[in-house]
Computed example of a mutant assay.
Amino acid sequence: MMTTRLEHNAADTRFEIYIDDTLAGYADYAEAEDTKVRDFHHTMTFPEFRGRGVAAQVVEYALNESRDAGFTVIPTCWYVEKYIAEHREYADLVA
């Protein structure tokens, strides 16, 4: 059985997903100074983990954590934009 772990790596400004302790993908963001806005500009799933919903899991985690921390988001990354469009419960997060 595979284990999945999601983490907020604030030092590298990204949300990460690990499968069996191997980094499987991440969602990068930038935070504007003195604002509560995160610009998600890149989502990456490593080739050996594609087709397993890795990107969706890390983006969902990133959006939930951003909401809980009081942030709005700018979905510069096409995948984050698509995810929000398909999951309207996150539409209120868009800055």
Rank of each mutant, 00 (worst) to 15 (best):
Q57H: 05
A62F: 02
E86L: 08
L63K: 13
E65L: 07
G70Y: 14
A55P: 05
R14N: 05
D21E: 15
D28A: 10
E86T: 06
E65G: 00
Y61F: 15
D28I: 08
I17W: 06
G25M: 08
A56F: 04
P47G: 05
A24Q: 07
L6K: 12
N64S: 10
Q57V: 06
G53N: 09
L63G: 10
R88N: 08
A55F: 04
T43H: 09
T3V: 03
D34S: 04
E89C: 14
Y26H: 09
T3S: 07
A56K: 13
F40I: 09
A24D: 04
A27L: 00
Y90S: 12
T76H: 05
T35H: 09
D39F: 12
F46D: 03
E81P: 04
V58Q: 02
A85V: 09
R52K: 14
R50T: 12
I17K: 03
E31T: 14
D39A: 11
E48I: 00
F15Y: 15
A32Y: 03
V94N: 06
M2P: 02
L23C: 08
A11D: 14
V37I: 07
D39W: 13
Y61N: 05
A95C: 03
I17A: 04
V54N: 00
Y90L: 13
H87F: 15
Y79R: 14
A95N: 12
E60H: 11
T72A: 11
C77P: 06
I19P: 02
E31M: 11
V54A: 02
D21S: 13
T3H: 08
T35K: 11
D39G: 04
E33R: 15
A10T: 08
H87E: 03
V37Y: 04
V58E: 02
I74Q: 09
V94D: 05
A11E: 14
A24S: 11
A30V: 10
A62I: 04
H41T: 10
E33C: 02
T3Y: 00
L23V: 06
V59N: 11
I74H: 09
